[in-house]
Design a protein around this nucleic acid. Sequence first.
DNA 1: GTTATCTAGTCTCCATTGGATACTATACCC
DNA 2: GGGTATAGTATCCAATGGAGACTAGATAAC
Lengths: 124, 124
Amino acid sequence: MKVANAYSADCPTRQILDRVGDKWAVLILLLVRDEPMRFNALRRAIEGISQKMLSQVLKSLERDGLIRRRAIATVPVTVEYSITPLGTTLAGAVDPLRDWAESNLKEVLNAQRRYDAQRKQVAA
Amino acid sequence: MKVANAYSADCPTRQILDRVGDKWAVLILLLVRDEPMRFNALRRAIEGISQKMLSQVLKSLERDGLIRRRAIATVPVTVEYSITPLGTTLAGAVDPLRDWAESNLKEVLNAQRRYDAQRKQVAA
DNA sequence: GTTATCTAGTCTCCATTGGATACTATACCC
DNA sequence: GGGTATAGTATCCAATGGAGACTAGATAAC
């Protein structure tokens, strides 16, 4: 039995994992899933993202067919980003992860505290 | 209704997403889920990871309580990394993502080709 | 008329990160 | 003594990410 091997550099899965790994991409995806949003609305919604990063990530999400960009001829021009069907399925696959995070964050933080406390003793 | 807001910088969910965002962490987690592995075994299994990164990521996964490190007094010393129950649940939450990747990679690549082709025309 | 404001970005610079490579310590085999 | 294996650490350089200034085009305010 041949198993898809995500551990070789050219594995498809790894490419997608890298995309999801993108710090901002998932955040944007989940936001535009709820409702189409404009550039500056996204920027305000996502605390800490720079304009450069937002612009960059939006572009690559559009390239991947996960979101759609639509410029509207108003003054000043507004641009609306919305999720595609493909993007919706990805967002769905991310949900379990978000749920896990919400359920288990406390446990992770506890583990970190335990680990740090131990290291501190060793150092002392 | 108050919704957990993953978009503010200090949101728990975002911290976990950052962790999963780590290029190598998920790969390691999925590997040691199948069976405990040693340092160099992991290095050989994961194409392209440097020793520094492997060491670093293993340390932070251990700190988060997702894997366990066990040094065995052989010569030379061997160190075995295994997944914890907490780690197992996270790995489970990652599975849908991997499945999505395998199912939809082709479509993503197509979208990229379309996008690039269009940009090329505009540039020409 | 001129200055300010709004939009969606781009440009430039610097700090942080990631990766490649060399190196350490220990003990076995030959 | 030289080579191999273990699990890392140390060092250096390139790539990435973020902060903030800047652009364009048109309307609104003074």
